[in-house]
Simulated scan of single mutants.
Amino acid sequence: MDPSAPSDSSADASASSSSSAVEDLAPGMAAMSLQDRFELLRGIGEECIQEDELMNLLQKKPVPICYDGFEPSGRMHIAQIMGRNDSDELTAAQIFYPCMQCADIFFLKADICQLGMDQRKVNVLAREYCTDIKRKNKPIILSHHMLPGFKEGQEKMSKSDPSSAIFMEDDEARVNLKIKQAFCPPNVVDGNPCLEYIKYIVFPWFEMFEVVRKEANGGNKTFTNMDELTDDYKTGALHPADVKPALAKAINQILQPIRDHFNNNSEAKILLDTVKKYRVTN
């Protein structure tokens, strides 16, 4: 069966859903210029394949269909499947999984694939499939940045290793401990997970980063951009002992409304307790 040609029932459902989405979004899209819409979408991705195709799509289709990948589970990521050596022996599941995810793109009639950089290979596979079947309009790939894990050498957070990441339901003490134990080498910016959290979470949220410290250590300082912060960090003017408490405070401020919700809403609390009992597998 050709995944680029869905069944009548799935096509009808997709068309109905798309039509409803267009009606909801059309007024907002009409108020934005082509360049504004392009920059809004382009700003999501660390990489775009291809920018000229994205601009052309937005010219012809003001409200495109976007496949936004989100996996609320502890099952294996596509990065773990696709990132193996050619000599490794693969199970049937490891072969079928990327094929199934690739098929999703065509069944959903997605114009744009907005996934993490770890999903890049399967998105490229979809574009290569278009070449094989001589399909002119290929899905545009918008790959967003991946936050590293807190341990040295962890390229991404791991759900099977709770200490490698901040979870939305983590309490204040747990956040403080994880960040206190996080890899954060002095004077080193590249591959520093604490600085990544500041750049991609704290600055977009607060538009600043506040460091509280003794006068003997340089006194309090408010950073208003990442370049200023990294310059201080490289020279040693900003130390990991300054960064970690400030980062923990900022993250806890962001998470507090979520904690309040689960503490004060009995239904949400039951749901969270149920989810926590699920076993995470690799």
Rank of each mutant, 00 (worst) to 15 (best):
D2P: 15
S7L: 15
S14Q: 13
S14V: 01
S16T: 11
S17W: 14
S19H: 13
S19L: 14
E23W: 04
L25A: 15
L25T: 12
A26C: 08
P27K: 11
G28P: 01
A30V: 13
A30F: 06
A31T: 13
L41Q: 00
R42H: 10
I49K: 01
E51I: 03
M55Q: 10
K60D: 09
K61L: 13
K61P: 09
P64W: 07
I65F: 03
G69K: 11
S73V: 04
I78R: 01
A79L: 08
D88C: 13
E89P: 00
L90V: 07
L90E: 04
T91F: 07
T91N: 10
Q101V: 06
K109V: 07
D111A: 09
C113F: 03
L115M: 14
G116N: 04
M117I: 09
D118M: 01
R120P: 00
K121D: 05
V122K: 01
A126Y: 00
R127C: 08
E128F: 02
Y129L: 14
K134C: 10
K138D: 04
H145D: 01
P148K: 07
F150C: 01
E152P: 09
Q154A: 07
Q154K: 05
S158C: 07
K159H: 07
D161A: 05
I166H: 06
F167K: 06
M168W: 10
D170G: 07
D170M: 05
E172L: 11
N176R: 13
I179D: 01
Q181V: 05
A182G: 01
F183T: 02
V189P: 03
C194Y: 03
Y200M: 06
Y200F: 15
V202T: 07
F203A: 04
W205V: 06
M208Q: 15
M208F: 04
E210D: 15
R213P: 04
K214W: 05
K214N: 12
G219N: 04
K221G: 08
N225R: 02
M226F: 12
E228K: 02
Y233P: 02
K234G: 07
T235F: 07
A237K: 15
D242W: 03
V243G: 00
V243S: 01
K249H: 08
L255T: 08
P257D: 13
I258F: 14
H261G: 05
N264G: 12
N265S: 13
E267D: 14
E267T: 12
I270L: 13
L272I: 14
K277L: 13
R279K: 14
T281P: 00
